[in-house]
Design a protein around this nucleic acid. Structure first.
Lengths: 183, 183
DNA sequence: ACAATCATACCGAACGAACGGTACAGTATC
DNA sequence: GATACTGTACCGTTCGTTCGGTATGATTGT
């Protein structure tokens, strides 16, 4: 089987257990591949597997989110589509975010910081651009982009902490309106 | 040296490395205590050390945050004091939140979920109470309490992801006003 | 057409190192 | 002399990683 076929499994596992918490034994079991086979596909070992998972998420951002925000439609429609896609990606809040997971482990953050900060900054910038085109001041637009990321990440943390995914779903539902206030 | 004296060190370490990422060797090095001494103070091992750190955070919530919110002062003043204390606790955003760190590791979340969800729920409820007394509808008050937690947690994640703590500081600064909107 | 070659996918077994944890003989303090 | 504490050596286990190798199937040379 091809290397790419196993990346979604890796993503799921790293999200669930974190970098240090995920062991090659678990990966081996979940993929059905022996440890030696894993090293055939990912010679760089665990770090390369995590990077493959991270790259998958960043590609989701590039292919599923950024195009939505670059379409020349009403801001409210763009944000609604973005939120729908985001909610689906995180399975209505039940998935955690790989970015957040890796950011909170100092060990792994050193390895992946550039990719993670690129993702955050790019998403924020894309949201801000929509708002600037809609006539909002640049500083305010950037702030609202940040607020959107903060709302998504915070809602995921809170929902997982409470084991109640209603807060995430509410935040996602209210986010488009909130982003479009006074424009 | 007394057991309690080492808990702040434990807190710092678990915040930094997470549960799985933190090893007894690191703890031994950081505290200057041998493994035998650590097991003398914490017979339950690593799990008990993490619980001590978590308890320390929950006690901070009880002794430093809840009293602020229970004082009968203007809501805006209470929230401002809360935010100032929170910002100081997280060192203007440079510290990460132990709750978030443990929540994102499925392994450790099972052990600590009850304490973490208690903390989130209690803080939210305390904020909501202030707003209810100020005349806000109960549902809206609860939502704003959730939004405050979401803002704090999300801002911590984003700031760490960007290695730029301005977003956290801005969120903390704006939070009191935001909580008091239209009351 | 047939064999030799090569690339790919995979695996069992083992490696040294580090893990969390324990046993025990001390030392310090009162 | 009892109690609180610690240094050292050690336990079994699991970690990430590596090695030598097999099975399969396409590619090539003749």
């Amino acid at each position: 089987m091809s290397k790419q076929a196993h990346v979604p499994t890796l993503l799921k596992l790293f999200r669930q257990f974190g970098y240090e918490g995920l062991t090659l034994s678990k990966i081996s079991q979940a993929t059905g591949l022996g440890k030696a086979s894993l090293y055939h596909h990912f010679p760089g070992g665990k770090a390369e597997m995590a990077e493959a998972a991270l790259t998958q998420v960043n590609q989701w951002l590039e292919t599923c989110i950024l195009p939505i925000l670059n379409r020349k439609v009403q801001p409210i429609d763009a944000f609604q589509a973005m939120c729908q896609e985001t909610s689906h990606f995180f399975q209505e809040g039940q998935n955690s975010c790989l970015w957040a997971v890796l950011v909170l482990e100092q060990t792994s953050d050193d390895l992946f910081h550039s990719q993670i900060s690129w993702a955050f900054a790019t998403w924020i910038e894309a949201i801000a651009q929509v708002l600037v085109i809609a006539g909002l001041d640049e500083t305010m637009a950037k702030q609202r982009g940040e607020d959107a990321m903060i709302a998504i990440q915070g809602a995921l943390i809170l929902s997982h902490g409470l084991k109640d995914f209603a807060p995430f779903q509410r935040v996602i539902k209210q986010l488009p309106q909130q982003l479009c206030q006074n424009i």
